[in-house]
């Protein structure tokens, strides 16, 4: 009996482990053999622009989790129910070429979900990728200027600050390798570029992620609400040293100039 239903058991592991591990990671408690489950999930978000991203992220996970649970459970049940076993009344197998109603259903439901998500996220995309934050300058509303240029290269991040004249790309720019310092509590805009190959500028703690393409200039923006140190990662496989391509972002409440000068 066991051998005949063995495969059904394996199939049943997919929904159990798939959803179980997800729940363990989100809860982040407990440990097995010295391996702690804490910190498996994303770090707490410190970027007010990205609260909506977290909401979308959770929503997509719940939808996918339900679909995964239902479909793989059905699959496991079918494998168990129709497995060969002693005493089974063999029925002839059916060859079905198509089933119009079924096909309509499994096309329409995912399509409806996708269209819903597409419209539901429009504003979030616009806020994070298109509508640059604005500030009031001398009674006029203007887009926030980039406060630093971040250049990805194999394998590290170069950070350029404008220097005393406040303009990037001039003689007095200051370069720091692998460390970015930003102010807390106000919108920050960065220019990101790549020197050699495709990289992706990502700060998981702020839900910021932007592919950077050599020859293109991208802008990213965020606001840090908690002072502290954040991790900057490359999230596009860019070569043998990709794993080394980490940098540090310091969010400081005051004394930004002094920090940068140093």
């Amino acid at each position: 009996m066991l051998t005949h239903r063995f495969w059904a058991g394996l199939f049943a592991l997919v929904p159990i482990l798939g959803i179980g591990l997800y729940v363990i990671a989100v809860l982040g408690v407990g440990s097995v053999g010295g391996f702690s489950f804490a910190g498996l999930w994303l770090p707490e978000n410190a970027n007010p622009y990205a609260n909506a991203i977290d909401h979308l992220f959770d929503l997509v996970h719940i939808i996918c989790g339900v679909v995964l649970g239902v479909t793989t459970s059905i699959l496991a049940y079918v494998v168990w129910r129709y497995a060969d076993h002693p005493g089974r009344q063999a029925e002839p197998a059916l060859y079905i070429t198509h089933h119009t109603l079924l096909e309509w259903i499994w096309t329409a439901i995912p399509a409806a979900i996708l269209v819903f998500l597409g419209f539901y996220q429009l504003q979030v995309w616009a806020d994070n990728k298109m509508n640059r934050p604005m500030v009031m300058v001398e009674g006029q509303e203007r887009a926030v200027e980039p406060s630093a240029l971040v250049v990805g290269k194999q394998f590290g991040w170069e950070v350029y600050y404008p220097g005393p004249d406040g303009v990037l790309g001039t003689l007095d720019d200051q370069r720091v390798e692998n460390e970015l310092t930003v102010p807390v509590g106000r919108p920050v805009v960065l220019r990101v570029e790549a020197k050699d190959v495709l990289h992706s500028f990502a700060i998981p703690g702020l839900r910021v992620k932007q592919d950077v393409v050599p020859g293109m200039t991208q802008l990213v923006w965020f606001q840090v609400d908690r002072p502290g140190t954040y991790e900057i990662l490359c999230m596009e496989l860019c070569g043998w040293g990709h794993y080394k391509m980490r940098a540090r972002m310091k969010a400081v409440a005051e004394g930004l100039e002094a920090e940068v000068q140093e």
């Binding site: 194999q154 394998f155 590290g156 170069e158 390798e177 692998n178 460390e179 040293g241 080394k244 980490r246 940098a247 540090r248």
Partner: peptide, 12 residues
């Protein structure tokens, strides 16, 4: 690090 070479920064 040494910019322009493969020597990366070990600031972290």
């Amino acid at each position: 690090g040494i910019p322009g070479t493969s020597m990366p920064s070990f600031r972290l």
